[in-house]
Design a protein around this nucleic acid. Structure first.
Lengths: 200, 200
DNA sequence: ACTTTGGTGGTATGGTTGTACCACAAAAGT
DNA sequence: ACTTTTGTGGTACAACCATACCACCAAAGT
């Protein structure tokens, strides 16, 4: 063969093509052909690296959730105050609001996958379940810490409030995605609500 | 022809077949044929009453949003206290949480439509925008009324809090749909949060 | 040198989809 | 009585899809 190829690199390249294709015209309109064209390779190659379309979609989903985790972690670290509970919580929740075009595409595809996974048996049973649970526990811990240091309202139930926070950010993020609200309006509301949780 | 037919009735019958079909295997897997089979008519008939698939999907979406409004109104009225702000708000928000199988199917299709409308140009520009805006104003008014009667925390900003409430219920409803939470857990969290908004 | 293996392109195939077309029956209008 | 109109079935068709298959080429192993 021409050159001995790094499989993982090739796979990543093709998956990125899929994500780009899905971002512009929706996950439902992704075909082997469209991915191949977007990646600049032949259909046969896509078949070669991912035997079936189902496996391709699955691989892309995995890559997407991985990225989601990276995004949140990066944002938490970038928020400077790495140990301030409010800063951490704020960073995590703001990640759910699509601001620039790239994050918008990212969240759109992620949402399409999530909805698709409800009906598609192949996509079900995948890791759309673990992440939110961990996140919930993590936020609850941050709230408890904040209560101890006097930063958060002591009357709050950390566990329940964590779920509320997650729901608020998911709901706001979705409304931005659907075009019902601007990203600015959503972040403003989020800040307002955080102000209620962390008074002063 | 055999019998002079009520067009609207026929159309409703076919649309219901589409919704049933979409509920079981997802909106993406709805075809002219599957709808025809589910409705117990020939494909030609579906074509006859809705010229194209796009129009069929559009009509179903319209019917869906209409039903959404009816559902909320019905629930508000059924909540007994027709003038108690808290009862009204509670009724509206609980409607977003899918409990029985029928409401689950309903919300699933509604969500699928919403997500599809983001990328599909034909579905865009449709009335997924007006309803939430009205609802927001409505909830804000209820909160203001509740503040005047001393039922709601006076420090709240009704406008922003209304958006938060909507986001919480949408977020919780979605999480139930995705199987991350049970309907019971979601309603419990919703009640908890309402307890924070309406103290005492 | 030669065989094996990894990578690639092209193309065929079987199935599905939306839609167009053709025929026909029965009620309404005249 | 006869001609429209309205409703209905069956079927044909062109497009597209995922996937299987065939051929080929170049590097590695020996």
């Amino acid at each position: 063969m021409p050159k001995l190829v790094d499989h993982e690199e090739r796979r990543a390249h093709i998956i990125d093509a899929l994500l780009r294709s899905a971002a512009s015209s929706g996950l439902h309109s992704v075909t082997m052909r469209s991915v191949a064209v977007e990646a600049g390779v032949s259909v046969r190659l896509v078949q070669y690296y991912f035997d079936t379309k189902e496996q391709l979609l699955l691989a892309a989903m995995t890559r997407l959730t991985t990225r989601m985790g990276e995004r949140i972690q990066r944002r938490v670290r970038a928020s400077g105050a790495a140990t301030d509970p409010r800063g951490i919580v704020e960073a995590v929740l703001l990640e759910a609001v699509p601001t620039d075009e790239e994050s918008r595409a990212f969240h759109l595809i992620h949402t399409e996958y999530a909805v698709l996974a409800v009906t598609d048996p192949a996509l079900g049973g995948q890791p759309f379940l673990a992440a939110p649970d961990e996140m919930e526990a993590f936020l609850a811990a941050q709230l408890t810490a904040a209560q101890r240091s006097g930063a958060a309202d002591p009357r709050l139930d950390p566990r329940q409030e964590a779920v509320v926070l997650l729901a608020v950010s998911a709901g706001l993020g979705l409304s931005v995605l659907l075009g019902q609200r601007t990203a600015e309006a959503a972040t403003a509301v989020l800040h307002y609500h955080l102000g209620r949780v962390f008074p002063g």
